[in-house]
Nucleic acid binder design. Structure first.
Lengths: 135, 135
DNA sequence: CCATACTATATCCGTTACGGATATACTGTC
DNA sequence: GACAGTATATCCGTAACGGATATAGTATGG
């Protein structure tokens, strides 16, 4: 029964927050991504994911991360490195701070994506989307 | 060859701006909507369209309209009423100011919708969207 | 008949979000 | 050894939003 804060109160998400969540949710639930990503990697993932359409300077990136930590969308994970790459120089940058989606953040992301899916579907119905379903 | 300002510079749109554009683009190109909508009607349309998920107070509504006029997304249309409803009391409110999508605004809207469609499709591919295609 | 609600716009102002600049520092390359 | 890339942090100005307030007409209901 307990629900914590209502996820709908954070909707709609800003484009920046949405894409950070998407970058952290990225696909596979194996050890790679369960360990989270660090901020800089998130920014790169977003840029790649959007084909350069969305870029974040450091102000936006770390400011957004801070706000998302406060609102509970993401959480920092302790860097449990050293067990994987014994002599990995660049794989184990001490400066990095890792983040992952919280359970709450995943719920919010799903709600936002469902909302956007409805918007897109409605736009299709009104023939505002010319092209076919993208790959 | 002339292109005016690059539509991509306005992307991504904020949720509020996107929904105002959607409300003004709404469907049929007959005389009803070609004449545009007034601000208050836009706010109501957005609220109905999103099932109450997105509400705009007057500050957001008229502030956004002002910014959208400045950036050329929408344009005001002269109220050519009187030719339709002779004795329509509430149909012809002198206070109303009507707006419609500009050609530029329509292009921006299409680009933004295409962008969102890609986001949604990518989310589906990553199985972040549980439910089926919404109606 | 008067209070309340709805329509319709406008402005003010505080808060939040974003975006660029700057700073620091380490690594790898030419 | 300058330069580009990695990685984070902070500062600060601007843009966007959101609620409050104002005005004013219409309509409703007790």
């Amino acid at each position: 029964m307990k629900r914590g804060p209502d996820p709908r109160e954070l909707l709609p998400l800003t484009p920046v927050v949405l894409h950070i969540l998407l970058a952290l949710a990225d696909g596979r639930r194996d050890q790679e991504d369960a360990a989270g990503r660090h901020g800089y990697a998130v920014a790169q993932e977003v840029e790649a994911m959007t084909e350069g359409q969305i870029r974040m300077g450091p102000g936006t990136l770390y400011g957004s991360i801070q706000r998302m930590l406060t609102s509970g969308l993401i959480e920092e994970v302790a860097r449990t490195k050293g067990a994987r790459s014994p002599a990995a120089t660049s794989d184990d940058d001490e400066r990095r701070r890792y983040y992952r989606l919280s359970a709450f953040g995943r719920r919010v992301l799903q709600l936002e994506l469902a909302r956007l899916a409805r918007v897109v579907a409605a736009a299709r119905a009104k023939q505002l989307l010319t092209g076919p379903e993208p790959a």
